[in-house]
Amino acid sequence: MNADPELITIPGRWDFEYRYFAGATASRFFAEIRDNRRIMGTRCAKSGRVLVPARSFSDAEYELTTDWVETGPGGVLEVFTIVGTKFSGLPDPPFVLGYVTLDGADTAILNYISGVDLTDLDVAARILMTRPRVSAVFKEAREGRITDFHFKVEQK
């Protein structure tokens, strides 16, 4: 036997199909975006917080939420990052991700951020660092997904 054999690697694919059930609450949240261009939150009666994106229960209070509340379309960009490198399976860089607290909401929602020149990342970051006002921009062709809209930095 060869004491130092050629090492074998076998190709594999990790590919499984799912159908994720959004549930009635997220379905309504998406329908409001698709049909009415509205970003809705749900209120936790116990804490009074308005959760965006809408959820049927608050994990902090461990209670069902009650009424629906319209939020935005304007809000504040709380935190951001500018993705600068290409990763397999993710979009081409550069692009900006951020969490936005919409007017009337107590929690922040994740989405893409546009409206800032990304030629120089440090310069762009300085602008985004100021917690600028942003506003939701809706796609013309909406399909009831989180990507039906994104946030654009408001020009002062």
């Binding site: 692009f95 989180i146 990507t147």
Partner: peptide, 10 residues
């Protein structure tokens, strides 16, 4: 997968 995966989080 419902609210965040589509926004390319890593």
């Amino acid at each position: 997968p419902i609210y965040e995966k589509d926004i390319s989080m890593s």
